[in-house]
C-alpha cells in the first residue's frame, strides 16, 4: 500500500468513524447512568435533517450543528419524560423514538431533498488542510476534532470528577444512590439529554462532512451500529474510541480492498458486514469471563427507578 493510499484510507476511515463515535459517546453516558435508549437512529436522523435545514438556510454550519444538538435533545426529552418521569419501559419507548425520528425527519426533510450543501471543511489554513501529507492531521472537519475532545472529556468526567462518580453510582445501584441523597431521576435526565445532543451532532456529520445532501433515512442504520459500539467498547470511552475506529475500518477497508482487486473476495462481503456484530457478542462473553466490575454493563441498565418506592 503506497503512502498516498494509506493517507486516503485514513481520511476515509476517520470520516466513517466520527458519527458512530459521537453517537456512541452520548449513548455511553446515558447507559452509564442506567438508561438504555434504543432511539439513537431516530435522534440522529432528526439531527441530520435539522442540521441540513439550518445550514442550508443560514449558510452557517456551526448554527446547523447547534440546532441539531438542540433538536435531538428535545426529542430525547420525549424519551426521558416517558421513561424517567413516567417510568415507561425503555426498550419500547426507544423503539417508538426511532419510529418518530424516522417519520419526522422524512416529513420535515421533504422541502430539502434535491438541494446540495457545501461541505463543512477544515478550519486550518489551506496549505495545511490540503498538504499531501499533513492533511492527514489537519484536513478534517471540526466535527472530527470535536469527537476526540469529547472522548477525553467524557473519560475525564466519568473517571475523575465527582459528577461522574455520582452518574456511575446511579447506574450501578440506583437505590443506594437515592439513599445517599442523590437525585437518580435528575442525573438520568441529564445523561439522556447529553445522549440526545451527541446523537444530534452525530447526525449533523452526514450532511456536513459525509453526504452533503438530504434524503430520507440518510443515516442508513448507523445509529444501531453506535448501540453495538457502546457494548463493544465495554462502556469505557477510550475503548469506545478504539472500537469506533475498528468498526470504521471494517466498513471502509472492504471498499479499499475491493477496489484493490482480488483479496476481499475470499470471504463474501456479507461476512464482513456481519463481523462487527459477531465481534461485539464475543466481547460481551469475554467481559463476563473476566468478571471485572468496571467493564461490565451498568447493573441498572434498562431498569426503571421509582423514587416513591
Amino acid at each position: 500500500m503506497s503512502p498516498d493510499l494509506l493517507i486516503g484510507l485514513i481520511i476515509t476511515l476517520v470520516g466513517a468513524s466520527t458519527p458512530i463515535l459521537l453517537a456512541a459517546l452520548g449513548e455511553l453516558v446515558a447507559e452509564k447512568s442506567g438508561v438504555l435508549n434504543l432511539g439513537v437512529e431516530g435522534m440522529m436522523l432528526v439531527g441530520a435533517v435539522i442540521c441540513f435545514a439550518v445550514t442550508y438556510n443560514t449558510g452557517n454550519p456551526w448554527l446547523g450543528i447547534v440546532a441539531a444538538a438542540l433538536a435531538s435533545t428535545a426529542v430525547a426529552m420525549i424519551f426521558a419524560v416517558l421513561t424517567l418521569g413516567l417510568s415507561a419501559n425503555q426498550v419500547a419507548t426507544g423503539l417508538a423514538l426511532t419510529i418518530f425520528g424516522t417519520g419526522f425527519s422524512a416529513l420535515f426533510g421533504r422541502a430539502y431533498t434535491g438541494k446540495p450543501l457545501a461541505l463543512f471543511k477544515s478550519i486550518f489554513p489551506d496549505w495545511l488542510a490540503t498538504h499531501p501529507v499533513l492533511k492527514v492531521l489537519f484536513g478534517y472537519s471540526p466535527l472530527v476534532y470535536f469527537s476526540f475532545a469529547m472522548v477525553a472529556l467524557v473519560w475525564w468526567f466519568l473517571a475523575k470528577t465527582r459528577g461522574g462518580l455520582i452518574l456511575r453510582a446511579v447506574g450501578e445501584s440506583d437505590i443506594s444512590a437515592h439513599s445517599m441523597g442523590y437525585s437518580v431521576i435528575g442525573v438520568r435526565y441529564g445523561a439522556v439529554a447529553f445522549g440526545g445532543a451527541m446523537a444530534g451532532i452525530a447526525g449533523s456529520c452526514f450532511p456536513l462532512m459525509l453526504t452533503p445532501q438530504w434524503v430520507e433515512g440518510l443515516t442508513a442504520g448507523r445509529g444501531w451500529i453506535a448501540l453495538a459500539l457502546v457494548v463493544f467498547g465495554a462502556w469505557r470511552p477510550i475503548r469506545l474510541l478504539g472500537g469506533a475506529y475498528l468498526f470504521g475500518l471494517v466498513m471502509t477497508i472492504e471498499l479499499y480492498a475491493k477496489a484493490g482487486g482480488g483479496v476481499a473476495h475470499v470471504l463474501p462481503s456479507q461476512f464482513w458486514a456481519a463481523l462487527p456484530y459477531l465481534a461485539t457478542i464475543l466481547v460481551l462473553v469475554l467481559i463476563s469471563l473476566r468478571q471485572s466490575s468496571n467493564t461490565s454493563a451498568p447493573a441498572c441498565l434498562g431498569k426503571p427507578f421509582l423514587p416513591t418506592n
Binding site: 420525549i78 416517558l82 413516567l86 417510568s87 415507561a88 417508538a96 417519520g103 422524512a106 416529513l107
Partner: peptide
C-alpha cells in the same frame, strides 16, 4: 398524505400509551 406521516401517527400512539402506563400502577 405523505408516507412518513404514518410513522408519526404510530409514534404518537405509542408515546401516549407508554405515558398512560403509569396510571395503571399509580
Amino acid at each position: 398524505l405523505p408516507f412518513p406521516a404514518v410513522g408519526l401517527f404510530q409514534a404518537m400512539m405509542l408515546f401516549l400509551l407508554l405515558a398512560g402506563d403509569i396510571l395503571v400502577r399509580y
